[in-house]
C-alpha cells in the first residue's frame, strides 16, 4: 500500500512538474506547480515527516504560490504569451538547456541505478528516545543550530530593508520624473 501510494504520488509530482514547463498558459503552469508541491508534501507525510509536510504546504503551497499567482495575474497575460511564443534564438539556449538537463538526469539515474550510491543509515534518523519530532526539531534549533536560526532572523531583516530601499526609491525617482516633465 505504502509503495503504491509512493509511486502514485511521485509520478503525479513528476507529471505536474513536467506540466509546469510544457503548459502554455502561465496560470495553468502555476497551478500545476501547486500540484507538484502538494504531491511532494504527501510524500513527506508518507515517510513520517509531519512537520516538513506542514511546512511545505504552508510555505510553498501557501505563501509562495499565492505570490506567484498574484504576479501572474498582475502581469499582462497576452504579453506573457508573446514572450513564450517568441522563438529563442540566442545561442540555441533552449536546446542547450534541454541537453544539460537531460545529461544531469541521466547522470543521476546512472548514479543511483549503478548501485554505487548507498544512502547513509543515519539519514532520516528517528529522534532519540523521549523526543517528539517537533520537540526534537525545536531542541535542535535552539541548541546546535542556534546561530543559523538567529542569523536567518537577521537575514529576513536585511532582506526586508533591502526590498524597501529598492522599491521605495522607484517611486521617488518616478515622482522626480513627473515633476520634471512640465519643464520640458
Amino acid at each position: 500500500m505504502e509503495q503504491f501510494l509512493f509511486f502514485l504520488l511521485s509520478l503525479s509530482a513528476i507529471a505536474f512538474a513536467v506540466g509546469v514547463v510544457v503548459v502554455k498558459s502561465p496560470m495553468k503552469s502555476v497551478l500545476s506547480l501547486l500540484g507538484s508541491f502538494v504531491a511532494l508534501a504527501m510524500i513527506y507525510l508518507l515517510i513520517g515527516f509531519q512537520f516538513l509536510a506542514a511546512a511545505q504546504l504552508l510555505v510553498y503551497a501557501g505563501a509562495i504560490m499565492v505570490l506567484f499567482l498574484f504576479v501572474v495575474m498582475l502581469l499582462n497575460l497576452s504579453d506573457v504569451n508573446a514572450v513564450f511564443d517568441a522563438p529563442i534564438r540566442v545561442l540555441g539556449q533552449k536546446r542547450i538547456a534541454i541537453a544539460a538537463s537531460a545529461a544531469a538526469l541521466i547522470g543521476m539515474i546512472a548514479l543511483f541505478a549503478g548501485g554505487s550510491v548507498q544512502a547513509s543509515e543515519s539519514v532520516g534518523a528517528i529522534p532519540a528516545e523521549g523526543y517528539d519530532q517537533i520537540e526534537y526539531l525545536g531542541a535542535l534549533i535552539f541548541s546546535r543550530y542556534m546561530i543559523p536560526f538567529q542569523a536567518s532572523a537577521l537575514l529576513l531583516l536585511a532582506t526586508m530593508i533591502g526590498v524597501l530601499v529598492l522599491a521605495k526609491r522607484r517611486r521617488d525617482s518616478a515622482s522626480d520624473v513627473n515633476s520634471e516633465e512640465p519643464a520640458q
Binding site: E129, A139, L140, F142, S143, R144
Partner: peptide, 9 residues
C-alpha cells in the same frame, strides 16, 4: 543523537 547534546545550557 543523545538528547543531552541538545541541552541549551
Amino acid at each position: 543523537m543523545n538528547p543531552n547534546d541538545l541541552d541549551f545550557d
